[in-house]
């Protein structure tokens, strides 16, 4: 009986540790170019990231908040970029890797397959690619936290 309890406890600990690791990605991150901040949340069992801040929030041509004007879907071209979900459907695979997701680049209106590797608790490598991972590009995103007052 004790052995069974120990086994169940061990499995539960493993499960919670895995879940905790999976949530390491949750938070606010800054892409390498520093022009935006992206907040990653967990929704159901998947991870999503949306733009929450833009260095240049307004379109210099129109003076209005920037919209997703490069989206190939014309009905989306007036959607504001702030609040736009650019990371979708990531699933934790273990060992600090999130896969099966996509990343959207508003600069060219293209959605890429994407894999995320946690480098350390405050940095992750995010790679968008086409077809196979060879045809892609990596960027390092860094964790942001609220300024201490």
């Amino acid at each position: 009986m004790k052995n069974k309890i120990f086994l169940i406890a061990f499995c539960l600990m493993g499960y919670f540790a895995f879940a905790q690791e999976a949530d390491d990605i949750v938070g606010v991150w800054e892409p390498g170019h520093g022009k935006a901040k992206v907040k990653i949340d967990k929704i159901d069992d998947k991870y999503y990231g949306k733009i929450v801040w833009l260095k240049e929030a307004k379109d210099p041509e129109t003076g209005e908040p920037k919209v997703d004007k490069n989206n190939p879907d014309e009905s989306m071209q007036n959607v504001p970029l702030r609040g736009y979900r650019i990371l979708k459907d990531f699933v934790y695979q273990g060992d600090g890797v999130w896969e099966e997701g996509t990343i959207y680049d508003p600069e060219n209106g293209t959605t890429y397959s994407c894999v995320i590797n946690m480098k350390d608790e405050n940095a992750m490598e995010i790679r968008g690619y086409v077809g196979v991972k060879t045809f892609g590009r990596s960027d390092t995103w860094r964790r942001l936290t609220m300024k201490k007052k």
Partner: peptide
């Protein structure tokens, strides 16, 4: 969502960030 709060977010790791030309 009050997006203005994200103005106050800063890098957790304050090592200077090097940015690169695309």
């Amino acid at each position: 969502e009050d997006y203005s709060k994200y103005d106050n977010f800063e890098l957790e790791d304050d090592t200077p960030v090097k940015r690169y030309a695309k």
